[in-house]
Write a protein that binds this DNA or RNA. Structure first.
Lengths: 206, 206
DNA sequence: CTGGGCGCACTACGGCTGTAGTACAGTCGA
DNA sequence: TCGACTGTACTACAGCCGTAGTGCGCCCAG
């Protein structure tokens, strides 16, 4: 009779590791890096004590698991809406990027916050850095191809500028120096449009 | 003989609280929020055990002390180079902002990293939020006046855009999704110039 | 049918953390 | 001169954290 309440077997819909990683992401957004502990993840995921330790024994392993989960989730989110066409119009690019940015601030706010927590931690953990690099490289490649097709004179720098603008906007709104209201999709689009106009239409200053 | 090695008296050049807060900032940059403990600050500052507890008994008090110190330091740094004239040329604005951004990535990298750690923590600590808000408000006011003088049609949004761009660039280079090399001052200036061009010169899309 | 392998639940423990408490030295005002 | 006070050094303690270890029950190969 020591059987637990719900031992549904090996495949209970979501894998054990997935449940743990999702709880870890939620915890990062809610309580930050100091709130992410093995026991807290157990509790948050509704799993018995020790489950997280069994999935990821060390803290480093838990962080790597969480980063992988984050990358998977964001890749799936971006893949749905991003990169409409190889060389669709500028409007399509602006719309897609603005939508992704806006969604990150509203629907996926938890993931966005967790990502900043993990990115900061990755500063001090080279193994985490590798995961981030791999995840972001493909996205930046696609973006680079797009801005090149739009006539960018310096694609690498322009990709950096675009990513920085979007990342900074998200950070400012989510954890920023001023409790900025989340801008409307229209406002995001306007800002992005201005940035791209400056990049692509600035002939004199090179 | 229990006298410590260096009890130089009440005024030993830098105040006790200042030493503690500076050590806390360094520790945040080096080890993150989890590495910031009373005992670690004692050790980092070269002060006897318990000193940090005496200056800031609770953790919350330590964080507030550290945020105040950060705001003071950044205000002093910005005040030296920023905001050259009420309505100097666009080049002056670009140069000043680019220089400040570039310096934050090189000379004041530690402060920059600590700021992101604290900003994330402030998400969950309203008292810290207040300090950040106060510190940033004046800077944004000045910046708003400048872009207005330059002919901005939507100063509030443009200030947000500028701050987001600079913040995102710093974050990307310091803790970013890809270990970006710190861009040269010239590159920072080019990106900033493009952003401002797009803001101020975009007549068709409003 | 059965034996091995594997994931899971649970316990154990050394170390560290935040915070409170106490005693002492130097300073200043009366 | 002396008494109170402030800041400092140090100790105490309860709680939590990361990690290792152990035994049980389920599933599948043979």
């Amino acid at each position: 009779m020591s059987a637990p309440a719900a031992p549904p077997g090996p495949s209970s819909g979501a894998s054990r590791a997935g449940l743990v990683a999702d709880a870890a992401l939620a915890l990062l957004a809610e309580r930050g890096m100091r709130g992410l502990t093995h026991r807290a993840v157990d509790e948050r995921a509704g799993l018995p004590q020790g489950s997280t330790s069994n999935v990821a024994r060390t803290r480093q392993a838990l962080l790597e698991l969480t980063v992988r989960r984050l990358a998977d989730r964001e890749a799936r989110v971006l893949a749905l809406h991003e990169m409409p066409d190889p060389r669709a119009g500028l409007d399509a690019l602006v719309g897609a990027l603005a939508l992704a940015t806006h969604r990150a601030l509203t629907r996926h706010r938890t993931l966005t916050l967790a990502r900043y927590e993990l990115a900061l931690e990755a500063t001090r953990r080279p193994e985490l850095r590798a995961h981030f690099d791999a995840a972001g490289a493909r996205f930046r490649e696609q973006l680079g191809a797009l801005v090149t097709a739009m006539g960018s004179a310096d694609p690498a720098r322009h990709v950096l500028s675009l990513v920085a603008w979007a990342d900074g906007l998200m950070f400012s709104c989510v954890a920023g120096s001023f409790h900025a209201e989340v801008p409307s999709l229209q406002e995001v689009r306007s800002g992005l449009r201005e940035l791209l106009d400056g990049m692509l239409g600035g002939p004199p200053g090179r």
